[in-house]
Design a protein around this nucleic acid. Structure first.
Lengths: 108, 108
DNA sequence: CGTGTAAGGAATTCTGACACG
DNA sequence: CGTGTAAGGAATTCTGACACG
């Protein structure tokens, strides 16, 4: 149910590669984490690991920073976005649930 | 024309992550490269970088090794596979070319 | 043939801090 | 506030070689 995720959300990219992909400095990338805009995983040794989704998100963040939006403001925007998305998710599931109840379970 | 590739073929994964994803030792991963079964890119400093496709390929290789197939044999199989695929690609393009010639250019 | 390992070095990453503003 | 930088240390990766078989 739901394509969920495959490669795009696997946290496998080290910060040096992210630097190359985004053009951001490691300092910037770590700072955005400090401001709770991005959430890499960690290797056993402590190295940060990012996903392709994270890379995309970092580029969006960079754009907003360039537009003069502060990290605090960006964070609020992102939280609002997340809330909207989870509500959509709930609606989708409720509708799907009703369909299943009426017509039986089928994939998708 | 052709979905080509997106994330799956981007070489962004370091050998330590590949080790975790595949369960292979770094020694094994490097050895399969030495035997020309896998072709990582390199960072400026010399570190190997793999794609998700590489990870999948490594797991197939590992299976064959377990079945007692030698690297040299695996390499021959892979070359044969590649030849078949590129021939399919050529046929596909020729047919597409004829269609374009008769009915004009359109996407896909 | 395929893999483990110890060796030494180089590249990569980490944190906390100072600086500027 | 957002970012650069030098500092010191730790984790990561690299190569070439010896070993076993």
């Amino acid at each position: 149910m739901g394509n969920d995720f495959s490669y795009k959300d696997k946290k496998v990219i080290t910060i040096g590669i992210v630097r190359e992909l985004t053009g951001l400095s490691e300092r910037q990338i770590r700072y955005y984490e400090e401001r709770k805009l991005i959430f890499p995983e960690r290797s056993p040794g402590g190295s940060r690991k990012y996903s392709f989704s994270d890379v995309e998100l970092l580029m969006e963040i960079a754009n907003k920073i360039e537009d003069g939006i502060q990290t605090h403001e960006i964070r609020k925007q992102m939280l609002k976005e997340q809330k909207k998305q989870s509500q959509d998710e709930i609606r989708r599931k409720m509708i799907q649930g009703q369909l299943n109840a009426q017509f039986g379970i089928r994939k998708n």
